[in-house]
Design a protein around this nucleic acid. Structure first.
Lengths: 147, 147
DNA sequence: GATAATAGACAGAATGTCTGTCTAATGGCA
DNA sequence: TGCCATTAGACAGACATTCTGTCTATTATC
């Protein structure tokens, strides 16, 4: 019979996610963006160069319009994003990153890559890539949710 | 130079964690415990047979006493835990699972194992174990936090 | 026995998510 | 071309899960 191995995958995922997130955002803070929170990451991830409507950001991130509005307004308040009228649709507004927002987005990518590099150098590239592969398969189990 | 591979580990961890948690607690609901929430899991994980003090549960889970009190009171309200006086310390109370609480704890383990089995049967035992191994190493990067 | 430490309660706040309802603007079509 | 369903977003409010700060009762130390 299959031996029940410890620890449980759920616990490992939860804790690893926590560790990774903490390290990532601590590094991002060190790079000069302490005001960026993990919850903002779907905005940075899904926003387009010329600006993106709230409803599109929300759909890409798999959250409600209201939740995305909340996040975008936070970024606006921190000077990382700005909201413009959409010339093509009077109902819509376009969310775009400011210069500092772009810098934060770039820094977030750098923090992520730095962490992956650190992981690879400590545990080996093979383990990093195997993690990426297996998690990507697991991600495919996601039914009906995005981001 | 190192190629920047997609997708980022952080994103994968976040989404995989979400998928795993959703599947786990959906299965637990199917087993008759829809009232158990992911946030309760540290309580089930750390509680002892004869009862455990809030402060100990909190420390093991790496959250504040107040947060643990909140979780324990929820479980109490759902009839899954009960709070007794600690005969050895007039300040303290002992949190213990009720019969139904024990059943929920057991069912949660079963849900977790069922999910791991499903993962293993679809992707292979080797991938499951490699995931466990790599995540366990990642978990070791956790400085100063428990659970 | 006085004093410091500990367990927990209570109050309040912050974050990030949700549902429900509303207005304004758009787009399709009769 | 004008009506109506759809869409984008705003506003209000709720909920879940964490936190900090303060307080009381009890225990432990000296």
């Amino acid at each position: 019979m299959s031996e029940a191995l410890e620890p449980r995958i759920g616990r490992l995922l939860s804790q690893s996610y926590g560790v990774w997130q903490r390290l990532t955002y601590a590094d991002l803070a060190d790079r000069g963006f302490p005001e960026v929170r993990p919850s903002h990451s779907p905005v940075f991830r899904h926003i387009d160069e010329g600006g993106t409507r709230i409803v599109d950001l929300a759909e890409r991130a798999g959250i409600t319009k209201q939740s995305m509005t909340y996040l975008v307004r936070q970024l606006e308040g921190k000077g990382l994003a700005e909201i413009r009228e959409d010339p093509a649709d009077g109902r819509a507004r376009l969310v775009a990153l400011t210069g500092r927002g772009e810098a934060a987005s770039q820094a977030l990518v750098e923090s992520s890559l730095a962490l992956e590099t650190r992981f690879a150098s400590q545990l080996g590239n093979a383990k990093l890539e195997s993690l990426r592969t297996v998690l990507a398969e697991l991600q495919g189990w996601n039914f009906g949710e995005e981001d």
